[in-house]
Nucleic acid binder design. Structure first.
Length: 414
RNA sequence: GUGGGCGUAGCUCAACGGUUAGAGCACUGGACUGUGGCUCCAGGGGCUGGGGGUUCAAAUCCCCUCGUCCACCCCA
């Protein structure tokens, strides 16, 4: 039996990898324009980091982490998300002594879940975090940046939903009220919800079990319990988003699966993804850095699911770089053409030469099969006249150009 | 982790339990040695995901397993 890849771990083949690279490059460019810098953090962390940040009783920590003892006996974990590592690095390198940090990262994350379309055990995220800014304008700007990114990669058919999860001031009171409300209905809740009622009653609000949906229809919502500060923060985020032209729907039932979120929480849901339809999500996490041993630091961030985004934007705005087939005929042309070939490549053009001894017909055929958009023919006639023939493979039109001008000419076209 | 659908050539799919498992596309070569695509001809490719069972006979029926997809769950 031949060896295959591990379940839930996929190869990204060249065609798709090129799209991914473009998505990542576009994200880096857009985020940079908002003042973000890249941070690269390790793929493995001490298990305790995730237990403390994501929350001991979350599904991720309870049953989805790839944890293992290393040779010294320490428990390590393949990161299931990026925020914890960024926060850890922020504290470890005392980045809080610098001005507000706006950081982005991209890379693989690992969760032991049942694979499904848009959900894999190794999956890729592009994330951004603002550390040290408490302003609601920061929330709005970060969300707007995400929308700008989505627009620039041509994402269509998606919706932005936001909510406020409150803070340690107001959430406990709400939690108690909700708990009392749910306790009376416990028999009609699904096993899952009644089981985690004590630990995390909020989760019942976005349970899709029909019984739970019916039971929680008239449940009290957090929005009515927000403290003055949270309410005003949420209001300002919404106003700013509106001013920035970002359409957001308030969904009072959004609940995040990670414990560290406070105040603003949001999700971007795309159509055409089936049930794994969140293409990005994030929110504010004002308590995390302190919980991890750093100074009190208000933060906001989000993560984008790269495979899901790639599924949605397939063939949207991305164009493969055109391939130019360089076809020198005969020894002298091959030798004389080498310098030109290098120059074209140095100027960023994607140029290939096949090294067969075939005649022009065969070489043209090879160029076509290689998907070339242009063919550059350098034969005896061209050599004699000091020109080169440029052929557009799609239209069939061709022209002769001086050797010195060909690079500029091609660059204008691609 | 639970329930269900589907696994046949590189891809998309055919084949009533019954000859040697086929087609289109793709690939390789030729018709065609200064011009590719179209057309025509030829060719390579398959332990029918893997293992076991039922049967005179299994791609087809049954069981197990692996993979994938859908829903639950979870989430990016």
């Amino acid at each position: 039996m031949t060896i295959t890849a591990v379940r839930g771990f996929n190869d990204i083949l060249p065609d798709e990898a090129e799209l991914w690279r473009w998505l990542e490059g576009t994200a880096a460019r857009v985020f940079s324009s908002y003042g973000y810098s890249e941070i690269r953090v390790p793929v493995v962390e001490k298990t305790g980091l995730f237990q403390r940040s994501i929350g001991e009783t979350t599904d991720i920590v309870e049953k989805e982490m790839y944890s293992f003892p290393d040779r010294a006996g320490d428990s390590l974990t393949l990161r299931p998300e990026g925020t914890a590592s960024v926060a850890r690095a922020y504290i470890e390198h005392k980045l809080y002594q610098r001005p507000v940090q706006k950081l982005f990262y991209m890379g693989p994350m690992f969760r032991y879940e049942r694979p499904q379309k848009g959900r894999y055990r190794q999956f890729y995220q592009i994330g951004a975090e603002v550390l040290g800014d408490l302003s609601p304008l920061s929330d709005a700007e970060t969300i707007e940046m995400l929308m700008v990114f989505f627009n620039s990669v041509g994402l269509k058919d998606y919706g932005l939903e936001i909510n406020s999860l409150g803070c340690p001031e107001c959430r406990p009171g709400y939690k108690k009220t909700l708990l009392d409300f749910l306790a009376a209905l416990k028999p009609s809740l699904c096993a899952n919800c009644s089981g985690r009622m004590e630990k995390n009653p909020l989760r019942s609000l976005d349970c899709k079990n029909p019984g739970c949906m019916e039971a929680t229809k008239d449940a009290p919502l957090l929005s009515g319990f927000l403290c003055a500060q949270c309410a005003s923060h949420f209001e300002k985020v919404r106003q700013r988003l509106a001013a920035l032209g970002v359409e957001a729907t308030v969904n009072p039932r959004i609940v995040r699966g990670l414990d560290y979120y406070t105040k603003t929480a949001f999700e971007v849901v795309a159509r055409g993804l089936g049930s794994q339809n969140a293409v990005a999500a994030g929110g504010r996490y004002d308590g995390l850095v302190k919980d991890l041993g750093g100074p009190e630091t208000p933060c906001f961030g989000f993560a984008i699911g790269l495979e899901r985004l790639a599924l949605c934007v397939k063939d949207a705005k991305f164009k493969h770089a055109p391939v130019i087939a360089f076809i020198p005929l005969g020894g002298p042309a091959t030798e004389k053409g080498a310098g030109l070939l290098r120059e074209l490549r140095q100027r960023g053009l994607k140029v290939v030469e096949d090294f067969s001894e075939a005649g022009l017909k065969g070489r043209m055929k090879a160029a076509h099969r290689a998907g070339a958009r242009y063919a550059l023919i350098l034969g005896d006639d061209e050599l004699r006249d000091g020109v080169i023939t440029l052929k557009d493979m799609a239209s069939g039109e061709q022209e002769k150009t001086g050797l010195a001008d060909i690079a500029d000419k091609l660059l204008l076209r691609v």
